[in-house]
Each structure stands twice: as C-alpha cells, then as structure tokens.
C-alpha cells in the first residue's frame, strides 16, 4: 500500500476539519473493508486517512418509537444484527447486515461505509432505501439530510461534498402492518457479491388484505442502487391475493438496466430481477401479516 497520513479525531468537529483540510486527498475510514482493499489495489489513492470510529456520534445506536432508529455511520454489522430492538422491528435491515461478507468482515464493516462506498451491489443500501432511511450529513457548512435513494450518484460516487461526513442513518419507525425483506442472489451461499439483489417493503391495511404502500429497490442492475418507484406504485391499493406481485416484478424488470459482466449476463440478471422481486415481496408481505 502507498504511504499516507493517519489520524483518529475524537470529536465530530475535529473529524470534519481534518476531512476539510485534506480535501480531495482525504478519506474517512470506518471498517476499512472497502477502503483498505481499494487503496491496496491502487484503485483509490489517498493521502490522508481520517479514522472516524473515535467520534461518539458515528458509534451510536438509538431507538425510540417517536424518533425511530438512528445508527452511527461506523457501527459495524454485528452490532446491528445483535441489537434486540433492531431484530424485532427492522428485520429487513438485519437481512442485509447479516449477509455482508463473513463473520470477520461483519466485525468491521459498517452500514455507513456500505452506503458511502456507493457500489451498485451494496446490500445494506437497499434496505436503507426500502425502509425510507435518511443520511445525516455534517460538513464545514453545517448539517443536512439526504434521502438514501438519492445518496449514490455513480459507481463509487456519492452525494457528499468535500469535507462532509456521514454521521448517522435515521430509519423511521415502521407503520403498523409493515414488513420488509432484502434478498440477493449469489452463486455461493456466502462471501459473494450480489448478482442481483432486491429489497421490498410493504404496508398493509388494517385487515391485512391489501397493500397501502410499497417500496422496491434493486442491486447490481444499474450504475447505482436502483429505487423503483413505479414497481411500488403498482402495488398500491391492490389486494395481496391478486397478481399484483407479478406486475410489480415486471415493473422492476422494466426499470433494471443490467450489463454483461463476469458475474452474470444482462439477460440472466433481468430474469433474476423478476424471480427475486416476487420472492422479496412474498416474504415482506408475510412479515407484514405476522405483525
């Protein structure tokens, strides 16, 4: 690896000023499971590594009915899926964080890093999108919020300005009768990058007969994670017993813009979008029914 400067600030203000001072050359470090790999491969030339794990705000998990869930950007996956409150209320999120890498990776990898890395295949990003999460960002010019579906702008590119830090992620408290599921397809059973991933969330009416609202998001079928509003809209107001799930799958396929690469051909990926959208919705609906 090429030499660089390493600092570990203790406060948010210090972290922001270090990032700001480093400019283009500086990068925040959370779990390092993307950043260190990329730096070692020479794909990411970094002069200043700012380890943000010492900042209190990036390490919190807080959860209340009123404010929903807040997860610090550096909180590693294992802390998320071991949290009883999250397990109970945010099953869709647990789906994602428990499949990122293996147990060793999950000891470091963060949801914030997954989002900032902005890979089209990022498993964590999809769950954030379907759960309507927002990114809490702070920089030299103050704080702002970015909807997670707007956060990734191109492969490896995000909406942060130079000097800005992702502090945490806020996930709203789910409505009653809501359910969510994320699943991906990989050739092995673990340790793989999604060939295609689909996240789906639904809210059912009081009778649990029809769908009030739904969100669908796709991994690895476009340059960024793909929030498919049309597919969710297609489900609005439809009965769960109807063929609306099939229709949503077709909308998802229409939105997908996959390419051929070594992980799968475009045709195969389109096929998988259909299969996985139906599977994701089925589980999301079941979870909502069991609420």
């Amino acid at each position: 690896m090429k030499p660089f400067e390493y600092v570990k600030p203790n406060t948010l203000a210090e972290a922001i000023s270090a990032l700001d001072a480093g400019g283009e050359d500086a990068r925040a470090l959370s779990g390092g499971t993307d950043l260190i790999v990329q730096m070692r491969a020479g794909r990411n030339v970094v002069g200043n590594v700012i380890d943000v794990k010492g900042v209190t705000e990036t390490n919190v998990i807080s959860h209340s009915k009123k404010d929903g869930l807040t997860i610090g950007s550096s909180v590693p996956c294992y802390r998320i899926y071991n949290d009883e409150g999250i397990k109970k209320t945010y099953a869709g999120l647990v789906d994602s964080v428990s499949i990122i890498g293996g147990t060793g990776i999950q000891g470091r990898a963060s949801l914030g890093g997954n989002l900032c890395n902005a890979a089209p295949s990022g498993d964590g990003i999809q769950s954030l999108i379907i759960l309507g999460a927002v990114a809490n960002v702070e920089g030299p010019n103050g704080a702002r919020q970015i909807a997670t579906e707007d956060f990734c702008t191109a492969p490896g590119q995000n909406a942060l300005n130079p000097g800005e830090l992702l502090v945490s992620l806020s996930v709203p408290e789910p409505e009653s009768n809501a359910g969510a599921h994320y699943l991906r397809f990989i050739p092995r059973n673990e340790m793989d990058i999604a060939v295609v991933g689909v996240g789906a969330s639904v809210v059912l009416d009081a009778e649990k007969k029809s769908i009030v609202s739904a969100r669908i998001s796709l991994a690895s079928v476009a340059p960024t994670p793909l929030f498919v509003e049309a597919a969710g809209d297609a489900l609005k107001g439809t009965e769960i017993a109807s063929d609306s799930v099939e229709k949503a799958a077709i909308f998802a396929q229409e939105a997908a813009r996959p390419i051929d690469d070594m992980r799968g051909t475009a045709d195969y990926r389109l096929h998988l979008v259909g299969v996985l959208t139906k599977r994701a919705l089925k589980v999301a609906i079941e979870r909502a029914e069991n609420q």
């Binding site: 390092g32 499971t33 260190i36 790999v37 380890d51 794990k53 147990t103 990776i105 000891g107 470091r108």
Partner: peptide
Amino acid sequence: GRTVNSCLVLGAE
C-alpha cells in the same frame, strides 16, 4: 471480542 480479518485492519487501529 470480535473476529476481524487482520489484513483489513491498520496496525494503527
């Protein structure tokens, strides 16, 4: 208390 891949951790950490 957690397993990590030490190739993806900096010595400084």
